[in-house]
Design a binder for these strands. Sequence first.
DNA 1: TCCATTTGACCACC
DNA 2: GGTGGTCAAATGGA
Length: 272
Amino acid sequence: MASRHQLQTMQFMDQASRSRSPRPDGVHGPPPPTPMSSPFSSRKPRVQEGQPTCVNLTPIPHTDGHLWRKYGEKKIKNSSFPRLYYRCSYRDDRNCMATKVVQQENDADPPLYRVTYIHTHTCNPLPPAPTPASVFTEPPSAKAEHHAVLFRFSSTSGGHMANADHPAVHHQQWQPAATTMVAQAHQLSMMCDDEQQAAAIRSGPPARRLSMFRAVVDGLRQMRSSAPPPSSTVVDGGWDTFSSFNLDTCEFSIDDELLCGDLMYSPDSMQE
DNA sequence: TCCATTTGACCACC
DNA sequence: GGTGGTCAAATGGA
């Protein structure tokens, strides 16, 4: 029997496959041959060198603030799960070339997905949604001279904001991992601010809550491993969930009880 | 009628 | 030649 959190996760998944029931397997015959003589003559290269990509490991791959249209699904060798291909819904309207690839990593509860984002969004949907792409629309700074990295996560009444404000975060080496972390934090923020999501989190086992928060920390850990910062401390700007993260010890500390949505966390609750 | 999803085919890359 | 990314017809719900 599925847990409440599992059901919530399934609801997230359903957003990607909403409204359309699958066709019966094998009901329709093989499609006729492609009528065009060279239908793929305008096909773009599969891999465009130098395009910005980042990888996000998340249990909720379909909640990142952007609208995606699925355009393909592929069974991948040596993987029990198909790979799903999405592109931005504004691809034609706004010439947004952002795409993402979702690959389920395991069958855990909740299952973990590897989401690979390719290209940054140029569609700038309204209201602006906090997504990895929206955070890193500025070109990466060539200078990473600061001695601390400031992350700011805030949840406002009108929507969610997630920013990595420090110029060092824009350093190219940090971008993928920082993007992952920001996306994780934003997903967690959304879940905590949503009444049903928060209820599911609250009713779940503490270990699951802890694992969710650790997903955020893991993003920071990736940042640290990809490019050690000039300073050892990440200072949180106030996303109400964690206050600081020590890049040397890979630990984050909680100053006091923290409010995330209607959930109150204390330092003890963050222990195993 | 519109539009998103499904799914097999096609094709580029290794 | 195998694998994976993309296309586009078919499908069906809104």
